[in-house]
Each structure stands twice: as structure tokens, then as C-alpha cells.
Amino acid sequence: MSNETPLWEVFIRPRNGLAHKHVGSLHAADEALALSAARDVYTRREEGTSIWAVRSDAIVASDPARAGQNFDPAEDKIYRHPTFYDIPEDVGHM
């Protein structure tokens, strides 16, 4: 057994209607302590209404070496953006 207390990532929903957002990390031995610590560390100034905590080693991340093949191909797909299309002004807001 490792003697290092696991790392967790904390996500807070600032208020209902908004998505949970990553706010930082902390160390905790288990889920319950992670949630308590997240509450004590990251909501001291009314920052949130809901907390998610996820073990950091449970996150799968994209490979930075593949950033090119992952993200660059979207660059020239300008037809996905509304401004690509010409609509006469007379038609009104669309």
C-alpha cells in the first residue's frame, strides 16, 4: 500500500444552471473525505452549490503528442460556423 494520500480533482457548480467547473485539487484517502475537504477548501466563500470530486488517476486525458491530429482538422471546417452562410439582411435575424 502506498503511503501517499491520493490526489483528487474538484469541480464546483457555482450556481444552478451552470456547469461544474474544475477549480483545483486536493488529497484525501476516500470519496467521503474528498467531498468534505472539497467543501472545506473550495467553498469557503459561497463559491458553489454542488461538488464533484474525481480521483485524478481516473481521468483519461488526450495525448499532447496527438494534439495536431486531434484538433487541427477542425480548423478548415468553416462551414460548421453560422457566419459561413450568406443570408440577405431582409430575411431578418436567423
Binding site: 488529497h27 484525501a28 469557503r44
Partner: peptide, 10 residues
């Protein structure tokens, strides 16, 4: 642990 410094202060 630092997390408990914050909890006990709370």
C-alpha cells in the same frame, strides 16, 4: 494533513 487544517479552522 493540510486539508484538515482548513476543516478544523472551519
Amino acid at each position: 494533513i493540510l486539508e484538515e487544517d482548513l476543516a478544523l479552522s472551519n
